[in-house]
Design a protein around this nucleic acid. Sequence first.
DNA 1: TAGATTGTTAATCGATTAACAATC
DNA 2: TAGATTGTTAATCGATTAACAATC
Lengths: 218, 218
Amino acid sequence: MAGSTPRIPDATVARLPLYRRALLELDEQTTANVSSERLAEMAGVNAAKVRKDLSYLGSYGTRGVGYDVEFLLFHVSRALGLTSDWPVVIVGMGNLGQALANYRGFTERGFPVAALVDVDPAKVGSEIDGRLVDHLDDLDRLVAERGIAIAIIATPAAVAQEVAERVVEAGVQSVLNFAPTVVTLPDGVPVRKVDLATELQILSFYQQRRASTSGADH
Amino acid sequence: MAGSTPRIPDATVARLPLYRRALLELDEQTTANVSSERLAEMAGVNAAKVRKDLSYLGSYGTRGVGYDVEFLLFHVSRALGLTSDWPVVIVGMGNLGQALANYRGFTERGFPVAALVDVDPAKVGSEIDGRLVDHLDDLDRLVAERGIAIAIIATPAAVAQEVAERVVEAGVQSVLNFAPTVVTLPDGVPVRKVDLATELQILSFYQQRRASTSGADH
DNA sequence: TAGATTGTTAATCGATTAACAATC
DNA sequence: TAGATTGTTAATCGATTAACAATC
């Protein structure tokens, strides 16, 4: 159909949060205007990329002047769907799940931790960071009552796939997978994967390459 | 010079840990051989990509047969520089730093947490998960004595850049940045950035897009 | 020999970047 | 009008993928 918004490239989507954070910082400093050059510097990318990325959202800058910080912040936030909070549930209260439950950053940045669940009777009913741990079997109710949109999977790898399918059945719309295994979901349910050890392994590669290329001395 | 190994593309490097994990799983099941097809399924990518990626490491498969699991595991591990452990230091014992300090996954997967540091007198000298918190000023000694190769930055955004420069001066060779700000380092010191809230924001985008494209009903 | 599966080629696709006309 | 900076074009670069010859 005519007039539909052009699809925003994945690479651009992944950078929008960088621009948003830079804009939030500028907004706090009550900076009214910002150039693509300055925004690029703050986000650690180059200015041509900033302009191209932002152009996918619309034409929100002024030639010769730059971008109005508040105006652009609103449009970047809106593009990301961050005009309202998205309650999350953390599934799996093992080591990593507890660590994530204690992390304040989710709630602070618009993703309130609305529920914690596990299946272990020793954990269900206990409190973590002042929050009650519910049983996975209560998920349907929790999702419905608390408007939970996103599940953070922090279970062992062996059950991650099963749990992911279950949270989607319960009505969760997106999944962030911390379990060290690949999870595949039906339809177009967005899944992202974060693996802390993987990040370290990639660092290890580049560190080694650097060591081997830059002189084999000592 | 002649005979130098071809450069492994960044996209391939990022997938090597996926293949490695699949191979570890196969190895535990004492599976002797694996096809690119099966490896692709386990890693959640397609078979052509697996073969192309692995071909950058060398020619370690057998036509008509597949890849020897143990042999390939060794070569993938070696390519990633994972033939020995890499001790890490976590800098910043705030909310996120404590969560990471309590996470067992680093140590379990070849990145032993060898030191925790902060600058807050209330934290220095205390124990987290049975480990003593040292002062940032002791970093030079800690890095030297414990062979620390990688720093995990979990400080507030405002000091992340300063701290990153300091850990590099202390002899750390790579940085994993959890602070919600961009850090730039000199030379070719590898830096990777993990931002949990960013991952959620990207999910939010795709969730919203899906909601708007798949019928505007209800 | 027949079947299976790699390693590599080449086509395609998507992302990056420099350059510059448009325009404030 | 002169200077500044966007938004867009087009060239380049890197990643993905299908196809298939090589070869077990």
